[in-house]
Amino acid sequence: MEIMGLAHPRPVTFALANDVVDSDSHGATDEDFVPLARVFVTPELDGWTLVIGRWCSPVIDERSEDVLQLCTALSARYGQAQAYYYGAQADGSGWLVAQDGVVVRRYCETGDGEDELLTLGEPLPLERARRAELGLSPEWDAAEEDEDDEDEWKWVAHDLAPEIAKALGVSPLALTPSTSVRGIGVLALTPYGVAHGVPPGAPSQVPCGEA
């Protein structure tokens, strides 16, 4: 939390944290809405700590370079650090993988015409495996790829972030009763939240039953 500049941690359940993060990510209607203000820092899950919230996205314009720098610093300290974006309603996927202070890979498929500008590093083994299953070359350049091949790959890559997260560490979408848990989760303010004077804890409006 110190490396990431997170502040004012408050213990919180998974259920409440999910509501808060969902509300912050998808747009509250009050005038004080700050979508990058809060994150959920999980307990240790099978040896990993997850930090969940829009502020952690490696692909949105206002956060991509800052998240890259954070993952670089975290991996230098802890050996590995990753960041993911996943839009469960066909909004695409993005992933950033850093190892020992070096960014190994950044890639996204969100339907944005400038997705390819974020690409860094060589394809991950799982990317190569999925392309091989499609009969596509494991090495490719989006600027030169055949249009049909490009479309076929985009459909697969669009939903690939959770699978990559699970293969390389822990996916929040794949937690089970057998997941090893140590410690407690907290809701914390990001530097954005502190700068905008967002109060710690739950937001004033948390939609009930919103998926």
Score class of each variant (00 low, 15 high):
Gly101Cys: 07
Ser25Tyr: 05
Ala143Phe: 12
Glu109Tyr: 07
Arg130Gly: 09
Pro200Met: 09
Ala98Pro: 01
Asp30Lys: 05
Pro203Leu: 06
Pro9Trp: 01
Asn18Gln: 13
Ala142Asn: 09
Pro43Lys: 01
Ala142Gly: 14
Val12Tyr: 01
Leu160Asn: 01
Val39Gly: 02
Pro123Leu: 04
Ser171Glu: 00
Pro200Thr: 07
His158Tyr: 11
Glu133Lys: 05
Asp151Thr: 13
Gly201Lys: 03
Trp155Arg: 08
Val34Trp: 05
Pro200Ala: 09
Pro58Ile: 08
Ala211Leu: 14
Gln99Tyr: 11
Glu147Ala: 15
Thr72Lys: 08
Glu139Met: 12
Leu68Cys: 12
Val186Cys: 09
Asp149Lys: 02
Ala98Phe: 06
Glu114Thr: 13
Asp112Gly: 10
Glu2Lys: 13
Lys166Ser: 14
Gly101His: 03
Gly169Lys: 00
Ala15Val: 10
Pro9Glu: 06
Glu2Thr: 14
Glu145Trp: 03
Thr49Pro: 02
Ala129Pro: 04
Arg54Phe: 09
Thr42Leu: 06
Ala211Pro: 05
Gly197Ala: 10
Ser204Phe: 09
Glu152Tyr: 07
Trp140Gly: 07
Ala76Tyr: 00
Ser137Met: 07
Pro138Gly: 10
Gly197Ser: 04
Leu45Cys: 06
Ala165Trp: 05
Leu117Lys: 01
Thr110Ile: 07
Glu116Ser: 14
Glu116Gly: 10
Gly79Arg: 02
Leu160Cys: 00
Gln205Leu: 12
Ser137Tyr: 00
Leu134Asn: 00
Leu74Thr: 09
Trp48Glu: 02
Pro162Cys: 09
Ala81Met: 08
Glu62Cys: 14
Leu16Thr: 15
Asp159Ile: 10
Arg130Trp: 13
Pro43Asp: 01
Val194Thr: 05
Leu70Gln: 14
Val186Gln: 04
Lys166Gly: 13
Arg63Ser: 07
Ala73Met: 11
Tyr86Val: 06
Ala188Val: 05
Ser180Asp: 08
Val206Tyr: 04
Ser93Asp: 02
